[in-house]
Design a protein around this nucleic acid. Structure first.
Lengths: 192, 192
DNA sequence: TATTTTTCTTAACCTAGTTCAAGACACTTT
DNA sequence: AAAGTGTCTTGAACTAGGTTAAGAAAAATA
């Protein structure tokens, strides 16, 4: 896809109005990448620190605990940002893994380049501030949901939020996202 | 407390380096307020949209669902920001309530003034971007914890994270924060 | 000091969700 | 077509945590 005319620019222009030069600089920092289903964009333990924008397809970001259990943090469909904020903030290896659930196109913004961007063109601070602020609302809602809704309610909310995902995402990842076992998700499905 | 020399300025200077004029302007937007234990800083349904910085004491922010159940989202001790991001972002009445758990001193930054601040002095975008980014890490950890840890583990993590809170926060709010009933928290406590 | 109100604990019973183990279904690959 | 592999379902037994209701302790008020 042509980077000079990439959909991400339209998203940016909804929130801020950079100059042509600033846009060009931003674009120059990005790695454009195609992932096949199952491929990794970022692996836990590595020190890559990319911030990732999903152009098309779908990625998931998950955390693996000491017992080897995966906990899916989020699904990122087109137009979303994802990545390991934790390691982006501190100087530590990534604790999350980001992986393609379908053939996907992504843009990678490496940590150091993001810092470069924000130092040189502080106008982008606003863009990321708004993005983080919105993301925080989503996360707060997820916390409320986790504590107050039943597994069945969470499942129906998931279906509303990601209408087409269920068709190609293996059930075990959906179950993980919902915080239940695959077996129990199977039982919920049967009831319908 | 003297606003010109307020601890919040030291926190700001750790992240950005505003001019004296910018600092003064920021300070001029803040309402300084003392709350007695039990008093409200923000009530659900109202249209105040304050962003709140806790100078001393402790506040909690909670969500009340249609059945009248409270879900505590976070405790904010000194140095923290809190408030209703949801209504801060959209033009809707607040869905969260923020209340003092102990006598507290706070700074209120009304939504419209925050916008004014960011428009006039974009350097503060960076300050809030960093703040939201850090907050997001905290929220992500809480989601992982909610789904992977047992109630007992969450309780012990809570004790580590907020060492002195348990002494003056009513058990029902701690239970709510942990996503369990007060009765079950009582059972967990007995085991020790 | 007595009284009322709120907070916390205990116990008996109940349920949402887990664990384990067996099959069923859908795929590739041969 | 057979055989192998991964994904999904089903069921029986179990456990973490909820519900209800009663009482104990503590704090507020008279």
């Amino acid at each position: 896809m042509d980077l000079q005319n990439h959909p991400i620019l339209f998203h940016i222009r909804k929130n801020i109005t950079p100059t042509a030069e600033e846009e060009l600089f931003f674009i120059s920092l990005l790695n454009s990448l195609k992932l096949k289903q199952g491929e990794f964009a970022e692996k836990a333990g590595e020190v890559t620190y990319n911030f990732i924008h999903v152009t098309s397809g779908c990625l998931m970001t998950y955390y693996t605990d000491k017992d080897g259990n995966d906990q899916v943090i989020q699904f990122a469909t087109s137009g979303w940002w994802t990545g390991d904020l934790h390691s982006l903030t501190r100087q530590q290896p990534s604790i999350y893994t980001t992986r393609a659930l379908a053939d996907s196109e992504i843009l990678q913004l490496p940590k150091v380049r993001m810092e470069e961007l924000l130092d040189r063109h502080p106008i982008f601070e606003r863009y990321f501030r708004i993005m983080f602020q919105n993301s925080l609302v989503t996360h707060q809602n997820r916390i409320i949901e986790a504590f107050t809704a039943t597994a069945e309610e969470r499942y129906h909310n998931f279906q509303k939020k990601y209408p087409q995902l269920e068709q190609y995402v293996p059930l075990k990842y959906i179950a993980s996202y919902l915080g239940i076992t695959p077996e129990f998700l199977s039982k919920i499905r049967r009831k319908k």
